[in-house]
């Protein structure tokens, strides 16, 4: 017993010492998507600030592939010492587990969420020619013309697709899903009127809405967005409880020491408060997330995973 206790004390001391010493070498921040996308950009935005605060280089490394699974899996299987981190996102941690037949990792068991950094709402936008000025009009139109309306999305299983499916479920309408490869070509066809509506993310929709190229009807978040304050939420427009955001944040491998996670969380939030970081994230359509502690982030990921599990199943978006 005494030996056991001694061991525990030793281990605790060792752990403490390791945490004290952390970070003693460069930290790798894995972006599981291609360079230049919003997730990569936010990683590169954060890295130099963390580097300053932690006194060790923070290197962003892109490991794209398999909808983000390759990068996430790499971190899931890395040593939980706080030197390998990943930007985990709604795709890698809430949607992919339901879409991919063989997931290489467990989104809950293999990770320790550290800090949620970005949350972007989606906006319901319709083609200008469509005779629908409000969500109510749109529902009526969809009911009058079942199967005639097309909704576009950036890819099968994206938040845009699933938001459309959720909309169909809640309103009891039928619309055809037209998947694209990325939001840009989808927006082109929306502007040209080849598809009728789309749940686009705020950052990409905003310029076109402001220029009057497409018409926005609602946002998918519970709160109205500061960017388009006059726009109602879907919840207000009668679809009670409709809520959907695209999010991503820093995660570590499971079993990463508490002290490291807490320290990282604190430094990340300090960085997020810096004026230049804040401004650039705002430009991406993100408002500072309400989820702030690692615990709250864990709970958030778990609840998102559950929500999308049901949605993916009910929407029939599952491949095979």
């Amino acid at each position: 017993m005494r030996q056991f206790l001694a061991c525990v004390v030793l281990l605790a001391a060792a752990g403490g010492a390791a945490a004290q010493a952390w970070p003693a070498k460069p930290i790798r921040l894995i972006a599981p998507y291609a360079a230049g996308g919003p997730i990569d950009i936010s990683a590169r935005l954060l890295a130099p600030k963390l580097q300053q605060a932690l006194g060790q280089p923070v290197l962003v490394e892109n490991r794209p592939g398999a909808g983000g699974n390759i990068g996430a899996d790499f971190v899931a299987k890395s040593a939980p010492d706080g030197y390998t981190l990943v930007i985990g996102a709604i795709a890698t941690h809430a949607i992919n587990p339901w879409l991919f037949a063989a997931m290489p990792y467990d989104p809950i068991r293999d990770f320790r969420p550290v800090a949620l950094i970005v949350q972007v709402p989606n906006v319901l936008v319709v083609n200008n020619e469509l005779p629908a000025r409000s969500v109510k009009d749109l529902i009526a139109l969809a009911k009058a013309r079942p199967g005639k309306l097309d909704f576009a999305s950036g890819s099968t299983g994206s938040t845009g697709h699933l938001a459309g499916e959720m909309f169909k479920l809640m309103t009891g309408t039928y619309m055809v899903h037209i998947p694209y490869k990325g939001a840009a070509p989808a927006v082109t066809d929306l502007m040209a009127g080849r598809v009728h509506l789309m749940f686009d993310n705020l950052a990409s929709a905003l310029p076109n809405v402001k220029a009057g190229k497409v018409r926005a009807l609602a946002v998918t978040t519970r709160q109205r967005s500061g960017f388009l304050p006059e726009l109602p939420t879907l919840d207000e427009a009668g679809l009670k409880g409709f809520e959907m955001t695209t999010w991503w944040g820093v995660m570590a491998p499971a079993k990463t020491p508490d002290a490291v996670v807490q320290r990282l969380n604190a430094e990340i939030f300090k960085a997020l408060e810096l004026a230049d970081v804040k401004e650039r994230l705002r430009a991406m359509g993100s408002e500072t997330p309400a989820v702030r502690t690692p615990q709250a982030f864990s709970a958030f990921v778990a609840s998102e995973l559950k929500t999308y599990g049901e949605l993916v199943k009910r929407s029939g978006a599952k491949p095979d």
Binding site: A34, A35, G36, G37, P38, I41, L45, G182, A184, P185, V187, T188, M191, A203, L206, P207, N208, K210, A211, K213, E279, R280, A283, M284
Partner: peptide, 27 residues
């Protein structure tokens, strides 16, 4: 003119513009 990227490089340019607080598009 439309804010539509025609290839991967153009998509990055959009990213660069957004980071600068410029919304690429007709305006």
């Amino acid at each position: 003119t439309l804010g539509i990227p025609s290839n991967a490089v153009m998509a990055l340019m959009i990213g660069a513009m957004m980071i600068q607080g410029i919304a690429p598009g007709p305006q």
